[in-house]
Design a protein around this nucleic acid. Structure first.
Length: 857
RNA sequence: GGGCGUUUAGCUCAGUUGGCUAGAGCAUCUCCCUUACAAGGAGAGGGUCGGGGGUUCGAGUCCCUCAACGCCCACCA
């Protein structure tokens, strides 16, 4: 306990209590706890590729209030933190920060120094570095960023157990990630396949369905004529991608489209390139789109892939992995004119090729009219800058129901096992699962990630045997197949006939972060711990990553453990600018959390966050932070005042008004508890706060004279005990929201941390004696009493006199019960209102108060 | 095209199974240095609950319909 300060202040509370909590270990997880007494949180690991913003502060505060509540109800709270530092965002940040680019063909340089550490000049050309050097730089930068993140989260007052910290690139995560993958592989849930995949030409990697986004882009329809090979004229198609003409393998129309039925089975010749292609029928062709007949290319979009697969068409790929037209013409183009036309495109970017081919078509007369500009949605990698292309490559997949109805049904069933907060978020999950169109592509052609832990044997000719990958023993994980050697081989056999070769890919970030429950719970490394936290109680996360993080976690958990990974999923909303637009980093005027902590205090910022209903988008509002600061200040002041009269008291609460106040508080405790049990922290705060202001403005005002009575009897003892009880309950109710303020005021008169104090209960707050009337109408009582004092105040305000002005007489006329209430609390009312004479009559059907002010001398 | 959400005071939002005259905070206005707090306190004004229809003794709340805004998803030549 520390003494009540002369002048309470919020300044410095964060520093004081962060250190205090560290020293006392109040947030440490009790590893001896059994599963049923544990409350485990699958904390989202924030991406460490920049700075934390208000969105983080917002959603992490929500989770923290819930964790703190559970801790106070006696649960052993498992609340870890992790950093998502593996993957593309880090690579990109490292490139920009150090002015380097990764080139696997460069040899490792142990003494490498990057040209810059922060802000390379704009005209700087990236220096190529080896993959190991690049990874070292990734590690250096993430270590730096993670320190900043940790400091900020501590400042926010998150009650995480920092000893449970993990990073998605650390050794433990790599081990868990590779172990889970190998088990998926052994059970047939992971497989490799050579197939057309969406490809980002800048990052030069495959991307998954979950990482796509559509962007509206300008384009143009081009009408192009294909000559019929029987000489009977031509067919006109419409295309937005004329540059893919050399990749055309067929024309397609709807089977019922009478205009084209006669053409099915015949062939046409591509303009410029002279390739003979069939006219085919498929129900996906839309008669009302363009001319109703389209060209199928390998590959322009995902529909092309479907047509190509289902109609067993040949492959004529022309786009390389760097987004340029391949140097060599695809099979089928054999005429001199065709080859010459193709040579005019080779090496060009897709965009340049389009310009060139339109010119060629115009000259040859195969272009009908002018291109008609349109705006249309184009698929992009969500982190990318150029439209995705489709290239054929060998990739790793994990089954997720995209190709098998039975798996899909299982995933939908897992979704139904979860309790969703708010529950309409469940629709998004179902919506996503039902819309899957392929398995989960997990391999990436990148460097800073968890390596796919397999090698392949090479046959006598040095060809890779993909069908029989060599896998490491689980005990040797994590492995880096580019430096480690599979069992039965030695390093001299790498890359030589009859030797082996490493899988060159890494796994996508989501393939690792889908295992956060396993990583944080040390699955496979400490199974005692794992079984005491898994399945988790809560997964908090943002709603935009239901399709990625949430879904992929369910997939992994379903396959590995045959269970849903958590009981509850709580989805947080967005932070919006005050003008209701989604807050974006690019706006430049974004306030940093640290500035707000300095200006208003962490508790005030938390207050703003906790006011937002679960899952509801919320406007950024400094006004709310000011309100939060006011609330915190008020808690300091009212505590000081109440403790001036009352500490811990054992007197009986005998006065009706004191009992009514405690009964009202008990109802608030009940409601706050039920709200928290339902993950509705905002309601718990709202009800607590509403009571608190009433308590300060009315109750404390009414009883302060009696409570401060120097030689008071039982009535004074009653007030003091009630005040102390209410104060204790309120401080505990506020503790999840305003941890610094609550801890401070608690320390003035209580032992230990408020954050491990017992959460109040209704019966502990206002015990009803056996046989007493449970339906004590405390609200009716308090309304009558407070209505009377309010009326007296109103009279004074209207008369423009001070509230302490003396009142000559008050006449109250009210129905019997109200009159009785006013009569029983009259001593307090008279003291608070400086009232001289009173007359209380029974009558009428509502409260009627007449106040006569004393004439001033 | 499919799905979901939102719409209540000038602003931000509560309003839990339908039930007194629809609430809070901020902002505005008036007043008060009152023995914890002037970074405070006491009051006041302000709403045809998005539009229309229906069920009901009674609808902000339930049903139908329309609209605006936002989000998610979709095979978008």
């Amino acid at each position: 306990m520390s003494p009540v300060p002369e002048k309470p202040t919020l300044d410095g509370l964060e520093t004081k209590w962060i250190a205090g909590w560290d020293a006392s270990g109040v947030y440490a997880f009790d590893r001896s706890a059994r599963r049923e007494t544990v409350f485990s949180v699958d904390t989202p690991p924030p991406t460490v590729s920049g700075s934390l913003h208000m969105g983080h502060v917002f959603s992490y505060t929500h989770t923290d209030t819930v964790a703190r509540y559970r801790r106070m109800t006696g649960r052993a709270v498992f609340y870890p933190m992790g950093w998502d530092d593996n993957g593309l965002p880090t690579e990109r940040r490292v490139q920009n920060f150090f002015g380097v680019s990764c080139d696997p063909s460069v040899p490792y340089d142990p003494s490498f120094e990057p040209p810059f550490r922060g802000d390379p000049p704009r005209d700087h050309r990236a220096v190529p570095v080896s993959r190991p050097n690049f990874i070292e730089l990734c590690e250096e930068l993430t270590a730096r960023d993670e320190k900043v993140f940790e400091d900020l989260f501590r400042r926010l007052g998150l009650s995480v157990d920092w000893s449970l910290l993990y990073a998605t690139i650390d050794e433990r995560s790599r081990r868990v990630s590779q172990r889970a993958f190998l088990r998926n592989l052994a059970r047939g849930e992971a497989y490799t396949q050579e197939a057309p995949t969406l490809w980002d030409v800048d990052f030069k990697t495959a991307v998954a369905q979950a990482e796509l986004e559509d962007r509206e882009r300008p384009g143009a329809y081009h009408k192009v004529n294909f000559a019929r090979t029987d000489g009977s004229g031509h067919v006109t198609i419409d295309t937005t991608r004329p540059e893919l003409l050399p990749a055309c393998v067929a024309l397609v129309a709807h089977p019922d489209d009478e205009r084209y039925v006669p053409l099915f089975g015949s062939t046409v010749r591509t303009p410029l390139f002279g390739v003979e292609v069939p006219v085919v029928a498929h129900p996906l062709a839309q008669p009302d789109k363009g001319t109703g007949i389209a060209m199928i290319c390998t590959f322009g979009d995902l529909t092309d892939v479907i047509w190509w697969r289902e109609l067993a068409l040949p492959t004529r790929a022309i786009v390389a992995r760097d987004g340029r037209i391949l140097a060599e013409a695809p099979p089928g183009i054999s005429s001199d004119a065709g080859l010459a036309a193709y040579a005019g495109l080779a090496g060009k970017t897709v965009k340049q090729a389009q310009t060139a081919i339109v010119e060629m078509l115009r000259e040859s007369g195969d272009l009908v009219g002018d291109p008609r500009p349109i705006t249309h949605p184009v698929k992009f990698f969500e982190k990318g800058d150029r439209p995705l292309e489709i290239v054929t490559s060998r990739q790793w997949y994990i089954r997720n129901g995209g190709r098998e109805q039975s798996v899909r049904d299982a995933m939908l069933a897992r979704g139904r096992e979860l309790r969703w907060h708010p529950d309409h978020m469940h629709h998004r999950y179902d919506n996503w699962v039902e819309g899957l169109n392929g398995d989960w592509l997990i391999s990436r052609q990148r460097w800073f990630g968890v390596p796919v832990p397999v090698w392949y044997p090479l046959d006598a000719e040095g060809n890779i045997v993909h069908d029989s990958p060599l896998v490491p023993d689980e005990s040797s994980l994590p492995v880096d197949p580019s430096t480690d050697v599979p069992a039965g081989y030695d390093s001299s056999q790498r890359g030589v006939p009859n030797g082996f070769v490493a899988d060159p890919d890494v796994m996508d970030t989501w393939a690792t972060s889908s295992l956060t429950p396993q990583i944080a719970g040390r699955w496979g490394d400490d199974d005692t711990l794992f079984t005491s936290v898994y399945p988790y109680d809560l997964r908090p996360q943002a709603h935009d990553i239901i399709r990625t993080w949430l879904f992929s976690t369910v997939v992994r958990s379903h396959f590995e453990h045959g269970a849903a990974p958590w009981a509850n999923a709580a989805l947080s909303g967005w932070i919006l600018d005050p003008d209701r637009k989604k807050m974006s980093k690019s706006k430049g005027n974004v306030v940093t959390p640290l500035d707000l902590f300095d200006q208003y205090g962490s508790d005030a910022v938390r207050y703003w966050a906790a006011c937002a209903r679960p899952g509801i988008d919320t406007a950024f509002s400094e006004e709310q932070m000011k309100v939060g600061r006011k609330l915190a200040t008020k808690i300091l002041n009212v505590t000081k005042f109440v403790l001036g009269a009352a500490g811990e008291h054992g007197d009986d609460v005998t006065e009706a008004i004191d009992r009514a106040m405690l009964a009202r508080l008990a109802a608030v405790v009940d409601e706050a508890t039920r709200a928290f049990d339902n993950y509705d922290y905002a309601r718990a705060l709202e009800r607590t706060e509403q009571f608190f202001w009433w308590f300060c403005d009315d109750y404390v005002e009414l009883v302060k004279t009696r409570a401060y009575e120097a030689d008071g009897g039982p009535a004074t003892g009653s007030a003091r005990t009630a005040l102390a009880e209410a104060l204790s309950v309120l401080q505990r109710l506020f503790a999840p929201f305003l941890p610094f303020t609550a801890e401070e005021v608690w320390s003035w008169w209580q032992k230990g941390s408020v954050h491990v104090a017992e959460w109040p209960t209704p019966s502990g707050t206002f015990p009803l004696e056996p046989g007493s009337v449970a339906a004590f109408d405390h609200d009716g009582f308090l309304d009558a009493v407070c209505g009377t004092i309010a009326s007296i105040r109103r009279t004074k305000t209207e008369a423009k006199v001070s509230q302490k002005a003396a009142v000559e007489s008050v006449t109250v006329t009210a129905p019997e019960e109200m009159a009785a209430a006013v009569r029983s609390a009259w001593g307090d009312i008279a003291a608070a209102g400086s009232v001289g004479r009173a007359e209380i009559n029974v009558g009428g059907d509502e409260l009627n108060v007449t106040t006569v002010l004393a004439t001033t001398a």
